[in-house]
Write a protein that binds this DNA or RNA. Structure first.
Length: 992
DNA sequence: AGTTCGTCGTT
DNA sequence: GACGTACGACGAACTG
């Protein structure tokens, strides 16, 4: 029958994808079973079935235990993380669900799902059936022929690519039958299969075209010249093996005929029973039944279903109750008023109307005005849910957690450009709570700045936006102090995403939207119909502004999408107790950062220029010395060329290898080589010159990057502080990075002397926390000895060393002190004995002794650190003192390197993160204090545990006291927070 | 033109 | 067999 369509699904890849696309914490039953993969699987399945209308379906699964491939290639799929522990239990339910839907699933011991797929696809093709293979594995491409198409998921699952013969040919320039040859040459990173280094799809295809097949290539491998030919000859065995492994088996005896894969329909009884177990609602049931209607011949056990289904319908019979519930229940987030861009574009119609801003606001914000003084959205304060390890006493600076009412959210959205922290506004959109939008051009926005400020003042507590810091830069262009002051939105979806999952970072709004709606199906709701139009109003009082030169629709659409994203992310943030963090810390600090970026740091341009000149000539000198020693020239900045000089020409023996197999030429290696070959005149002078070149070149580059970023208008440097990049909660700094200006040795530190007070200011003050991370550990672990060490107020490292070595502080040697100091700092990084030994230049045995002594002295610190990792393993995430979470999927990896790294990160995250939280609170407090005292002095830089303040004349003492107080009392711990300050004519001199 | 690697600066 | 977190910047080398 030509109508027949066979759909073959790779069950494992679909379940994995579903699992990672959906946050497990939002999908679980009361009894604690995770259902995210099941739900996502069902969702994806129905989507594909609705799109493709197959008549026959089979789902293939892998079976536990290895296959013949593992015997051939031990590392096969070695880099793949083991299935997370809450994924595996979901498979039986998926299979049960498939059975209830009348879908056949197949597993076969000794074979992978891919082989079952290969067999079924071959069967389908031979029967002349229209065959679709849904798989995320590119090996499936070899199955494509005139009857077989592979549905291959792109970045977004919903856009499945239909890979047919032409598509493979277009993309890879080979036929589907040749595809495995190409894959064998290229390798497959996902499966830990190395290909020929340096050979990608392009070269592989070229060779295949030239020689017809992999066999042809291997026979004529001698004829291939160049590096790639050489690499091919070296990896010939690997390639042969790859080709064996990636060939799918296509003739397993499955003991099943295609007819048996026909979809007869769902068994209602079984379906209701499994949906009940999974606590899936009627929406999911309805959707499944739309895709897989009940089997008319299945009349068995009708009485038992009716009891089940009435059970379900009772709770959701009332439609208004459903809507209410679905807003709160993350599992039903699908039914929230979610608009993707496509939907919005259909619904938003631009209608140019002449309205006055005031009357428009009056009309469309009426609902907010009514509830303004009796606002239910201000709920009773909720305690911050904290990690049991860390307890903070003082959270008064944090706002109380609010409930989220999507009907009250409105959006203020400015577009424009942003360079050197200088904004220019192009459009300004107000999306009202009733989903009507007003779009202003620059001139209109300018003349209504005060009105907008008033709007913010009245309703800022339900205002949402994206990237408030950049918005504020842009809004500054309107030159309205009132607007800048009033701009305090309640929700920033960029920050919301960051506090919900700091690991994922969307580079722009588009990416954030994609990520937010990934795996979420959008349903048409009545609410979405309410988006009625984007209106552009003309200012009657300013006739010159009457011309509308732009289309307001995209602006309104973007604003509407921001509201939609907020409707998904804010409830998520509330559930995970992150809203307080966003509103109490991130949003307030974003205002401080905005001002810091706007103000910038003044630099002495001449000084930078002369440094650049000096470093440049040093670079050239060192380069010449290196050339002389080597007896030839080369690019000293090329690790590859250095390798050949050092390890081939000069015959030195390499020390360590790099990831990709070459010998490392990093500074540590060069140092070691210099000691080892101290008697080899030529080698050692080359090494010394090279090291010198490296150092000077680095400094030269840093100075150059600073010069490049000087703003021509005010001769200051305006860095950008990235607030949503570092997974621990720290800030980062770019264009230029002012958080990595050299500080370790005199030569580099000089660069700091180029940072000076600007016109109208007299000096710089540097204020930094001493040993914050250690103090956090002392507090959180409750270790009495360490707490006492901090309270004693003496030389901390000396005091600790005296405890560790059991001698009085004055008898501690310089070595002992520095060793203990390194140990102390290494703690928070999960430092190994080996690493400690490396750093201290002592034997691993000695390092081990030190470590044991240290932990014997500070036992509770040891317990605390272990507890952090253990808790991260159970919870899946760590928390800082202020509840900031970071998730660690790698903690359960079977790959030890990955797992160890995750453990170290999990140990470090709550400590580094708490330090970051404290500094952010200190910045908010310092900024506020300076404002309140009317000081002209201002904070201009933050370097993780240091603030740099630009001091105005006569303010030094007062400002010093204020900033010190802000930092020392940002939070109250069981140990004091020590801040040291210094003042000087430049940043270097301000050091203390 | 865009990506990945190696290296190195900070905390 | 590796072996300290978190970042950003640069040039080289390789991909298209």
């Amino acid at each position: 029958m030509t109508q027949d369509r066979l759909l073959i699904i790779d069950g494992h890849s679909l379940a994995f994808r579903a699992y990672f696309a959906l946050d497990a914490s939002h999908f679980s039953t009361k009894s604690g079973l995770s259902t995210n993969a099941i739900w996502g699987f069902a969702n994806m399945l129905t989507t594909v079935v609705n799109d493709e209308h197959p008549t026959h379906i089979a789902v293939a699964f892998d079976v536990k235990g290895g296959t013949f491939r593992n015997e051939m290639l031990p590392q096969y799929k070695g880099t793949r993380d083991a299935a997370p522990e809450d994924l595996l239990p979901q498979f039986p339910y998926i299979q049960q669900l498939l059975k209830a839907l009348g879908i056949t699933y197949i597993e076969k011991p000794g074979y992978e799902g891919d082989d079952i797929i290969g067999t079924l696809a071959t069967m389908g093709s031979q029967a002349g059936m229209d065959t679709l293979v849904l798989s995320g594995d590119r090996d499936a491409f070899q199955l494509i022929d005139e009857h077989v198409t592979v549905l291959y998921p792109g970045h977004h699952f919903r856009d499945l690519k239909h890979m047919d013969e032409q598509a493979v040919l277009d993309k890879y320039k080979v036929t589907p039958a040749q595809y495995p040859d190409l894959a064998a040459l290229r390798g497959e990173t996902a499966d830990n299969i190395p290909g020929v280094p340096g050979v990608g799809d392009g070269f592989a295809a070229k060779w295949i075209a030239q020689f017809g097949s992999l066999e042809g290539i291997l026979e004529h491998s001698d004829e291939i010249t160049g590096k790639k030919g050489e690499a091919l000859r070296e990896h010939i065995d690997q390639v042969r093996l790859n080709r064996k492994v990636n060939a799918l088996v296509r003739d397993i005896d499955l003991g099943i005929s295609l007819d048996e894969l026909y979809c007869k329909g769902s068994h209602l009884g079984e379906l209701d029973s499994i949906l009940h177990t999974l606590e899936f609602g009627t929406r999911t049931r309805a959707k499944l039944l739309r895709a897989f209607p009940a089997d008319p011949n299945d009349t068995a056990d009708n009485s038992s279903n009716s009891s089940n289904s009435s059970d379900v319908s009772e709770e959701t019979l009332d439609p208004s109750a459903t809507a209410q519930q679905s807003e709160l229940d993350p599992r039903h987030v699908v039914s929230v008023n979610v608009l993707d861009q496509q939907q919005v574009s259909e619904l938003v119609r631009a209608e140019v109307q002449q309205v006055s801003c005031d009357s428009w606001v009056e009309e469309h914000f009426a609902s907010l005005r009514q509830t303004q003084h009796n606002d239910e959205s201000y709920a009773l304060p909720e305690r911050l849910d904290q990690a049991s390890e860390i307890d903070s006493h003082d959270q008064s600076h944090l706002s109380h957690e609010q409930h989220f009412d999507p009907t009250k959210v409105w959006v203020l959205w400015a577009t424009g450009s942003l360079t050197h922290a200088q904004g220019a506004l192009e459009t300004l959109t107000i999306l009202a709570p009733d989903r009507h939008a007003l779009v202003l051009n620059a001139g209109q926005a300018q003349s209504h700045a005060t009105a907008v400020a008033r709007l913010l003042h009245d309703f800022g507590h339900t205002c949402a936006t994206y990237d408030a810091k950049s918005q504020m830069h842009i809004l500054r262009a309107l030159n309205s102090e009132a607007l800048v002051q009033a701009y305090q939105p309640a929700y920033d979806i960029d920050l919301a995403q960051y506090v919900v999952d700091s690991q994922f970072h969307a580079k722009d709004l588009t990416e954030l939207i994609e990520h937010t709606f990934e795996g979420i199906e959008l349903e048409e709701t009545q609410q979405s119909q309410e988006v009625q139009g984007a209106f552009n109003f003309d200012d009657i009082d300013n006739p010159q502004l009457l011309t509308n030169t732009f289309d307001p629709t995209p602006c309104a659409r973007q604003a509407a999408t921001i509201a939609s994203v907020a409707q998904v992310l804010i409830p998520k943030a509330i559930e995970t107790h992150q809203l307080e963090l966003m509103q109490g810390i991130e949003l307030p600090v974003s205002r401080v950062l905005e001002r810091m970026e706007h103000v910038g740091a003044a630099v002495d341009e001449q000084r930078l220029d002369s440094m650049l000149e000096r470093f440049s000539s040093e670079v050239e000198l060192a380069q010449q010395q290196a050339y002389d020693a080597a007896g030839k020239t080369m690019n000293l900045q090329s690790p590859k060329q250095l390798q050949s000089v050092l390890f081939d020409d000069m015959g030195l023996v390499g020390v360590r290898k790099t990831k990709s197999g070459g010998y490392s030429t990093d500074a540590q290696t060069l140092q070691e080589l210099a000691t080892r070959y101290v008697h080899d005149e030529r080698a050692s002078s080359f090494l010394v010159a090279l090291l010198r070149h490296r150092e000077m070149n680095k400094l030269k580059q840093i100075v150059q990057s600073l010069i490049d970023e000087i703003d021509a208008h005010d001769h200051r440097i305006h860095t950008t502080f990235e607030q949503t990049v570092a997974a621990t909660g720290r800030l980062s700094s770019t264009a230029p990075n002012l958080q990595n200006i050299p500080n370790r040795n005199m030569t580099g530190r000089e660069i700091r002397s180029a940072f000076v007070p600007g016109d109208g200011f007299v000096s710089l003050m540097s204020c930094d926390y001493s040993q914050v991370e250690l103090r956090i550990m002392a507090h959180a672990s409750g270790d009495e000895s360490l707490i006492e060490a901090f309270r004693s107020g003496t030389d901390f490292h000396r005091y600790v060393a005296s405890l560790v070595y059991g001698v009085s502080p004055e008898d501690i040697s310089a070595d002992q002190r520095s060793h203990v100091k390194a140990m102390s700092y290494g703690l928070a990084y999960g430092l190994s004995t080996y690493g400690l030994a490396q750093q201290l230049q002592v034997s691993p045995a000695e390092a081990d002794v030190l470590k044991n002594r240290y932990f014997a002295t500070f036992g509770k610190v040891h317990d605390y650190l272990e507890r952090l990792v253990a808790e991260a393993k159970t919870l899946g995430y760590t928390q800082t003192m202020f509840g900031r979470r970071r998730y660690f999927p790698g903690l359960h990896s079977t790959n030890r390197r990955v797992r160890d790294a995750a453990e170290r990160a999990a140990l470090n995250a709550p400590i580094q993160g708490t330090a970051a939280d404290i500094m952010k609170i200190a910045m908010i407090r310092a900024d506020q204090a300076l404002q309140e005292m009317g000081a002209r002095s201002r904070v201009i830089l933050q370097i993780h545990d240091e603030l740099v303040v630009e001091l105005a004349a006569g303010e030094e003492a007062q400002v010093e006291a204020a900033v010190r107080d802000a930092m020392e009392h940002a939070v109250s711990l069981d140990v004091p927070l020590d801040v040291s300050t210094g003042v000087g004519a430049d940043w270097q001199l301000a050091a203390h």
